Computed example of a mutant assay.
Amino acid sequence: MRNQAVRRTLVRLLEHARYEVLPTPSAEAKVIEHVPLDIAVTVTASPSKGLPATLELAERLATRGYVTVPHLAARMVSGRSELVEISERLKAAGITRVFVPGGDADPVGDYADALALLEDLAVMGHPFEQVGVTGYPESHPTIHDDLTVQAMWDKRRYATHVVSNLSFDPAVIRVWIQRMRSRGVTMPLLLGMPGPVDRTKLLSMATKIGVGESTRFLAKNKGTFARLAAPGGFTGERFLLKCAPTLSEPTSLVEGLHVFTFNQIEETEAWRQGLLSRLRS
């Protein structure tokens, strides 16, 4: 499969993958059954379920020995008092990593965006060892591309790494990484990509994250669903192979993968192990 440099790059990224899961009732059991302990697990924040569901699942997985990364969606946190409580709660559970997106919900308090929450974490003495922020390879529906790159520049003092949102175009990934690095954003990057997806299961999962939220998600991500569910469409292996030249460049600073599982956790881990086996053979 391709040359040795490509193999080495892809093996490295697959070995440093982490899985994003939704805080549904079945998620914990699926992770415990199918995900090895050397894979970090991030837990999304759902406006319909609230932050408690995110924190509780992260805590339970942490007690099982997983490195867990709860999403602290800024607009779902009321202010510094609640942020202090959340930080103390997570530290008590041994959780040292968080991911801070702005979130899709309307602000419930003081934080209109991720930067405002990140600034308060700094005032609190940087309670977490690792703090991830979002990057947008594809155009954001409401924010100009230049502003999304500027936002990463603004957040660089408060975050330790960038997690890219979904993109299916290796050329877009290449240009975005080049723009980000030329701007002086040197944080390590986790490349966001979907795991293997079954159309029926994906639509079923969309209904479980809340009717209103599902409607918004489907409306915003029609292209995502079409590409994931189309026969012979997107495949993770083909995507990674096409991205490999960019990801192999030392200046890209890509240190791993952030895999959106859509809670198809067993299938995602089987795909990762299968691809690793082929790359190593």
Results as ranks from 00 to 15, higher is better:
residue 244 A to P: 15
residue 188 P to W: 09
residue 212 G to D: 11
residue 205 M to W: 06
residue 191 L to R: 04
residue 175 V to D: 09
residue 206 A to L: 14
residue 231 P to R: 06
residue 221 N to R: 01
residue 200 T to K: 06
residue 220 K to E: 09
residue 230 A to M: 11
residue 205 M to H: 12
residue 194 P to H: 04
residue 225 F to E: 02
residue 181 R to N: 06
residue 181 R to D: 07
residue 196 P to S: 11
residue 191 L to D: 07
residue 223 G to H: 06
residue 247 L to G: 08
residue 200 T to C: 02
residue 183 R to H: 14
residue 241 L to K: 03
residue 204 S to M: 08
residue 234 F to M: 02
residue 223 G to L: 11
residue 250 P to H: 07
residue 187 M to A: 14
residue 182 S to D: 15
residue 174 R to G: 05
residue 241 L to W: 03
residue 175 V to P: 00
residue 218 L to E: 13
residue 194 P to L: 04
residue 198 D to V: 05
residue 217 F to P: 00
residue 237 E to Y: 02
residue 179 R to T: 07
residue 223 G to V: 04
residue 211 V to R: 15
residue 222 K to D: 10
residue 244 A to L: 15
residue 237 E to S: 15
residue 212 G to F: 05
residue 184 G to E: 06
residue 231 P to I: 03
residue 189 L to G: 05
residue 196 P to L: 13
residue 185 V to N: 12
residue 237 E to K: 04
residue 227 R to I: 02
residue 234 F to P: 01
residue 219 A to W: 03
residue 206 A to V: 14
residue 209 I to M: 11
residue 235 T to Q: 15
residue 234 F to A: 11
residue 222 K to R: 15
residue 233 G to E: 03
residue 180 M to C: 03
residue 195 G to T: 10
residue 236 G to W: 05
residue 251 T to D: 13
residue 213 E to W: 05
residue 240 L to C: 06
residue 245 P to W: 07
residue 241 L to P: 01
residue 251 T to I: 08
residue 240 L to A: 10
residue 245 P to V: 08
residue 226 A to G: 01
residue 233 G to W: 05
residue 233 G to S: 11
residue 246 T to P: 00
residue 204 S to N: 13
residue 182 S to N: 11
residue 184 G to S: 04
residue 248 S to M: 13
residue 177 I to Q: 09
residue 207 T to C: 10
residue 215 T to E: 02
residue 198 D to A: 07
residue 247 L to S: 07
residue 227 R to Y: 03
residue 202 L to R: 01
residue 239 F to V: 08
residue 221 N to G: 03
residue 223 G to K: 02
residue 189 L to V: 15
residue 181 R to Q: 03
residue 250 P to C: 06
residue 213 E to V: 09
residue 191 L to M: 14
residue 224 T to S: 02
residue 195 G to V: 15
residue 197 V to M: 09
residue 253 L to M: 12
residue 207 T to S: 15
residue 218 L to K: 09
residue 179 R to M: 11
residue 241 L to E: 13
residue 204 S to A: 14
residue 189 L to Y: 10
residue 208 K to G: 10
residue 208 K to Y: 10
